[in-house]
Amino acid sequence: MTEAHDSVSPPAHLLEVENLVKEFPVKGGGLFRRTAGVVQAVSDISFHLDPGETLGLVGESGCGKSTTGRAVLQLHKPTSGSVRYNGRELTTLTQKELRPIRRDLQIVFQDPYASLNPKMPVNDIVGEPMRVHGVRGPQVPERVADLLKRVGLAPEHGNRYPHEFSGGQRQRVGIARALALEPKVIVLDEPVSALDVSVQAGVVNLLEELQAQLGLAYLFIAHDLSVVRHISDRVAVMYLGRIVEIGTRADVYEQPSHPYTQALLSSAPIADPEKERARERIVLEGDVPSPIDPPSGCRFRTRCWKAQDICATETPELVDRGTGHPVACHFAEVRAVV
C-alpha cells in the first residue's frame, strides 16, 4: 500500500496546520433563513504533528477542539488557513483528490454506541474501509482477523453485532476500523470519555502500544486533563476557538503560564484526599462567552483576574514570553498548580 504523493517540498512535519479558521453560519428564524451571525468555532490556530507523537488538545465544551480535529481531516471544510499533510495542501483538494490521502488520516469517535452501524457484524465494520478503498480478495478477512487480535478482541467475535459488545470492546472495534488502512495519523476525539475508568485504562494502554508498534501520530482530543497528561508528548490548551498555550507535557502541566491553563488545571480534581484538600484552587467567575460574539482582544479577559486595558484592545500572540513555551497572554507568568 504505497502512494505516489507528488510532494511539493520536503515537509518539516508530518502534519502542519497554519492559521486554521472554521466558522459556521447561524441562520435566522425567518422565512428566508438569512445568515444572522457566525459562530467562530476555530479562530486562527496553528500547530504541527510528527510521526509517532501525541499532541493532546484540551479545553472545555465549545472551545473548538473537536471542530479542529474534523477541520484537519477535511470533514469540515476549513473557512480559511492551511492544513498540509506530508507537505501537500489538503484544503484546496477536491473530494476525489482527497480520497487516497484519507487512508493515512483516520478518526476514532467518542461514542462507541453511535459510531458503529448496529446492522453490520464487526467483521464488516472493520473491513469496510478496505472495501471502500478497493482492497478486495482473500487477504481482507485475514487482515480483519489480525486487526481484531491487535486490539485485544478474539477474531471469532467478528461475526457478532455491536450490541453484543461492552463499551470498551466497541471502542476497540472503532480503533480496529481506524487501523484498517494503515494510517499515519489518527484523530482520537474523546476516545475514552464514554467508558468507565476500569475499562478506560485498558483502551489507553492499547492506544500507547499501537503507537509504539506502528509509529502512529495521534491528535488526542479530550477534556480529561489526567488522561491527556498521561498519553500526550505535547499539549495544546484551547479556549473559545484559540490555542492559549502549547508546549511539551512538562511545560504545560508543570509550568502553566496562561491564567486559563492555571485555572483549568487547578479545577481538575486529584484522586488523593491529602493533596486534593491541601491544594489552592483558582475558581473562575461566570461562564464561557458565546462564540458568536467573542470578547475583543484576549477572549479570556472577561473571566481573567489579570485583565488590563491592553487585553481588550490587543489580541495576545501565541509566542514564548520568557516561560520557555508559547503562551497567548500579555501577562504570562509561570504558576505551578498541580
Binding site: 461492552s166 463499551g167 470498551g168 470492546q169 468507565d196 475508568v197 476500569s198 475499562v199 478506560q200 485504562a201 485498558g202 489507553v204 494502554n205 500507547e208 486533563l225 489526567s226 488522561v227 497528561r229 498521561h230 498519553i231 507535557r249 512538562a250 502541566y253 488545571l265 481538575a268 480534581p269 486529584i270 484522586a271 488523593d272 493533596k275 498541580v338
Partner: peptide
C-alpha cells in the same frame, strides 16, 4: 485497588496504567 490503578495521575506523568481486565 484496581480502580485506583486505572486512573492516570494529574500531578505526575506517571507510568503504565494497570486496568482491571474484563467488564462489570
Amino acid at each position: 485497588a484496581g480502580l485506583l490503578g486505572s486512573i492516570p495521575a494529574l500531578d505526575s506523568a506517571g507510568g503504565r496504567l494497570h486496568p482491571i481486565g474484563g467488564a462489570p
